[in-house]
């Protein structure tokens, strides 16, 4: 009788251990942080406006384009 009870208890213990192990495994898998490199580089859109310094740098190019292509700049 006692042995049977012990056996039952130990069986119950085994099940508990098994359940705990399974739960632990599931938890461990779930806790895995998946680090994935983004497919595209992160883009930071700063000011989209064309800034004055850029326009200043392109002043000579603009002048040359107009001079070299008079047919495109009728007046």
């Amino acid at each position: 009788m006692l042995t049977g009870v012990d056996q039952g208890a130990s069986r119950g213990g085994m099940t508990t251990v098994r359940t705990a192990t399974m739960a632990g495994l599931v938890l461990m898998l779930g806790a895995c942080v998946q680090v994935q490199a983004p497919e595209r580089p992160i883009e930071i859109n700063l000011n989209v406006n064309v800034r004055q310094e850029v326009l200043l740098r392109l002043e000579r190019d603009a002048e040359a384009i107009i001079e070299e292509n008079p047919e495109l700049f009728p007046q």
């Binding site: 064309v50 326009l55 392109l58 002043e59 603009a62 002048e63």
Partner: peptide, 15 residues
């Protein structure tokens, strides 16, 4: 390192 839009805007300033 200049976009077409930037070049065009510079032309716009001039025209």
């Amino acid at each position: 390192p200049v976009s077409v839009e930037q070049m065009a805007a510079a032309i716009g300033c001039r025209t």
